[in-house]
Nucleic acid binder design. Sequence first.
DNA 1: GAAATAATTGAGACTGAATCTCAATTATTC
DNA 2: GAATAATTGAGATTCAGTCTCAATTATTTC
Lengths: 145, 145
Amino acid sequence: MYQSPEYRQLTDYLHVQGLNVTPERMEVLSLVLKQKGHFRIEDLIRNSARRKKSISRATIYRSLKTIEQAGLIKSIRSINDEKIYEIVKGHHDHMICEQCGAIIEFHNSELESLQDRICNSRNFTASRHVMKIFGICSACQKKQE
Amino acid sequence: MYQSPEYRQLTDYLHVQGLNVTPERMEVLSLVLKQKGHFRIEDLIRNSARRKKSISRATIYRSLKTIEQAGLIKSIRSINDEKIYEIVKGHHDHMICEQCGAIIEFHNSELESLQDRICNSRNFTASRHVMKIFGICSACQKKQE
DNA sequence: GAAATAATTGAGACTGAATCTCAATTATTC
DNA sequence: GAATAATTGAGATTCAGTCTCAATTATTTC
Ligand SMILES: [Mn+2]
Ligand SMILES: [Mn+2]
Ligand SMILES: [Zn+2]
Ligand SMILES: [Zn+2]
């Protein structure tokens, strides 16, 4: 148990930081890995609550922050500023449907390199970026017709 | 008094919405127009508090939302998720320095049209977008040397 | 491996931004 | 200008997120 690369990555990070590898931290990661797509912290808290040995809200918040710092997850703000997490895979940006809340991922290398060029031209050293396009998804457009 | 185009735009919006043109709403707009660059709602509250006839926190929040809906201002999230407002001029995106908090505006039409093309190819009808690049500004880089 | 030391957790208190409530005030309609 | 409707102010409330601190669990020392 706890041997997929994600657990390795977390334990490595904990070791580097001089933090203990605790059952709670590993369990929060396991709750995260059970999620499909984008999820809210309340989903984790609810899922944990219905286990025999539930983890406190405070510890879920604390561990999730650690897991984020370990580079395993990141967060975005969806409609209404709702904080949404996702497992870090390849970099991508988001289209967010203002009607149904759907979050559509996309990646465009032309867009990425153009951003690099813009930053270079202004002597800005970029470490990350957030690009969200809000509008109406194709499914919702069909419903309107 | 209250005759610049911004006040017209707000009164027009209020009329369309069937809302009253009140001294408080106009005063909040005037507080906004006094701001230079990006500002926080707390700045407005503080500035209002040091006037003879101050406006309540609740009304500043309410009026600012109305002014935003009227299309006069919009908000972005800076470092630490701090909510920052700015007066709507031409569309632009932001580079945000993680060191000093500086917010650098930029506009690149190539970037904008590329986004349109990406949305078209996915049948997503975009209404707006948010693009923030985080990193270190040129001034802070010089300081490091 | 038991005692001493250090880190982590859980429960609930606390915080701060934002919203809501509702009586009092102000504006609009009749 | 009386009746009606909208807005405001003060403070209560909400909600996500953080903090506190005693109790628990893990690590280190001998
Ligand atoms: Mn995603
Ligand atoms: Mn700006
Ligand atoms: Zn949709
Ligand atoms: Zn800087």
